[in-house]
Every structure is written in C-alpha cells, then in structure tokens.
Amino acid sequence: MGHEIHVTEWGERKNPALMMLHGLARTGRDFDEVAATLSQNFHVLCPDMIGRGRSSWAASPEAEYSVEHYARIATGVLDHFQIERAAWFGTSLGGMIGMHMASGPETARVSALVVNDISPELPATAVNRILSYVGSLPDFGSFAEGEAWLRQTYAPFGPAADAYWRRMARSSLRRRGTDG
C-alpha cells in the first residue's frame, strides 16, 4: 500500500488478538487506558489509520481516505502481525471499518465485532459538530493551546482527568514545518 502505519501494541502475542480502531479524526492512542487493561487477556493492536497520529498521509486522498482502503490497511496490519483472526472494537469510523471487514471477503478474520458511536443516521447537530473540527487542520501557537482545543472539541467524550488530556494532546498534536 506504500504507507507507514503506526501501531501501538499491547499484551502478549500468544493471547487472542483484538484490533481497536479509532474514529474519523482520532488516533489509536485513544484506547491506551482500556487497551492496557484488556492486554492482560488479549494481544491488542491499536493502529493509526493513514492521515492520523503517526501514520503517513494519503498520496491520493480521494481514493485512500475511504472505508474500503482503511479495511485493506487493517488487513495489512493483521498480515504483518501474522494474525489470522481477531476480535474487533471500532469507534465511529473504526466501527464502519469493522463492519466492512465482517461483511466482506475478510469476514472469516473477524471473530467478534463491537462498535460504538455509530448509527445508520447522524443528527444534523452531530454532523455540524464533526465538520467544525475535521474541515481544516487547526494551527496552535503552543502545546497548551492545542490541549485546550482538544478539551473543548472532545468534551462530548465525557469527563476525564488532566493526565488523560495531556496524553491525548501528546499523541494527537503534530509539529508543522515553518515557511521561513
């Protein structure tokens, strides 16, 4: 596929595999707390899909930022780790990828599927909220500004400790090059 895919790996490879896939504008690091707990019984993989986290960007966004392409990437992650069958947990976009995998040619590779934050229809208010933060990359003058933006934008995730928001900022924000 020509992409570098960053995967956070938890637990022992001898344990049953669990793939955890993030939402549209998020990263695999969103699952750190739950993945750490589940790693006692599972080999947990939390990839960053292309264009997110530490994975590479799409060379052809119109073709590559699609559920079908993400599913091919997820299959590639399973292949890389030599996993024939895995349980899946998907949030929003990650749920769509999991449903695509479970209902397509790779169905035998999905042992269980759990999805959250996904439905057949989205209320207009939810669509507008999502569009407000995925339409363009925000630019911050400092790490603190970026963390504050994440806290406000993702407040619907629910209450979380300061340490969670700091970790979320460290794993979500990227430095950008300067023009001068």
Rank of each mutant, 00 (worst) to 15 (best):
H43Y: 15
G177Q: 15
A17M: 03
A58V: 03
P120F: 12
G90W: 04
R151W: 06
G135M: 10
N15L: 15
W10K: 02
E147A: 10
V134I: 10
S171H: 15
F31K: 00
N15D: 15
S142R: 07
Y164H: 12
H3V: 05
V115A: 02
G135D: 12
M1N: 05
R151S: 10
E12A: 08
A161K: 15
L150Q: 02
S136H: 09
Y70H: 08
R29G: 09
D117E: 09
G98L: 07
G11W: 00
A87C: 09
L137W: 05
T178F: 09
I5A: 08
V67W: 10
I50Y: 03
P16S: 07
D32K: 05
A108W: 03
L173C: 06
R109W: 01
G135R: 07
T27R: 13
R166P: 00
L21S: 14
A74T: 14
S132I: 07
R13S: 06
I118C: 03
S60F: 02
Y65C: 14
M20T: 14
A144C: 05
S55Y: 04
D117G: 01
T75E: 03
S66G: 12
G95R: 02
S142G: 10
L173W: 15
A74N: 01
S132L: 08
H6R: 04
R85K: 06
P47S: 01
D179Q: 13
M96E: 13
P105Q: 15
A71W: 15
I118R: 03
D179E: 10
F81T: 13
